[in-house]
Design a protein around this nucleic acid. Structure first.
Lengths: 164, 164
DNA sequence: TTGGTTGCTGTTATATTATTACGTTTCAGA
DNA sequence: TCTGAAACGTAATAATATAACAGCAACCAA
């Protein structure tokens, strides 16, 4: 196997960390990135991003609608949330977890990275792991079979250190 | 990267092959496996499996319902199809493609294999590729981070040899 | 500053995928 | 042939996502 570029220790998401810091950092990075790109991080989009970062477990679109409703005393319709999600996905600020129909904040939105997810089936936490070597190997195999790769989705479900 | 166990050539699914043979073989293997396990491959389940094997592109549950309706002049309700799909998944006779909400026949239902999918976004074909080494590497990394892995989902989308 | 254009949000309706709950039938084994 | 478990039928509904169109806000050029 490739020499692992992965740090071999418990992910921050699974430790007792200052999560306010995660949220704050994510929002600042998002502001900066959008400013740089001339993309508009509107109040709604910012709110959705903040709510997604509420914890390290992916949230569904309808969960987000409920959370928005709780905060604003005003119900938002599905297209509104889905449009925000689409924007955040396009900007690489969040990822979609296909196996959960849910969305989670991206840890390194600035670089064009390959990643995969370790998902705990008990507490729901989803840890983003760099997948550069694995990804490259898959690309190589695929090309040998005549495929041109555009996107990869690797989702791994199990138990996190806290839940086992 | 690991020495590839993948055969480096165009997958059968992407060639002009005798697909009747694929279907027949899949059904025979299914019969044998179910017989061995004492599992009941009923007429309905067999039909669903046959329809899934209609081609090498994953089919949605409602597609299958439509196809059953066309053949039987009798509409089957969602739970009926979903129960058959659940059985076939349990028996390892089919796989679910999360990114498409669709189902595709398994090429080697008898062995407890790890696999991933190359999916063509143009023609829809989904090719099953053995992922033993990659899978093991992911397991190892995950364990180093304190995770215990139960299931892996790797789906790769791009263009097949015929569509590019 | 105005007017036009573009992009964002609101709203209604509906599509798509999947499950719950309960009743009926079928079938293998006693 | 009876019986219990498994499979299937049916109606209702949940969960996720999109289409289509209207109104509004922000930006830019004149």
């Amino acid at each position: 196997m490739p020499k692992s570029s992965t740090v071999n220790k418990t992910p921050i998401a699974c430790t007792d960390h200052n999560h306010e810091h995660c949220i704050e950092e994510a929002l600042i990075k998002a502001e900066q990135l959008c400013a740089k790109r001339g993309a508009r991080l509107t109040a709604l989009r910012r709110n959705v991003l903040r709510l997604i970062w509420k914890n390290h477990a992916p949230l569904g679109a309808y969960d987000l609608m409920d959370m928005l409703a709780e905060e604003d005393t005003r119900r938002v319709a599905p297209p509104t949330v889905y449009r925000s999600l689409e924007f955040l996905l396009d900007q690489g600020l969040i990822h979609r977890i296909n196996s959960l129909n849910a969305y989670v904040g991206c840890h390194s939105p600035s670089d064009d990275h390959e990643e995969y997810f370790l998902i705990c089936r008990e507490c729901g936490v989803a840890v983003e792991v760099p997948a550069k070597e694995i990804s490259r190997a898959i690309d190589k195999n695929a090309e040998a079979m005549g495929f041109t790769i555009e996107t990869q989705t690797l989702e791994v479900v199990g138990l996190c250190p806290n839940c086992k």
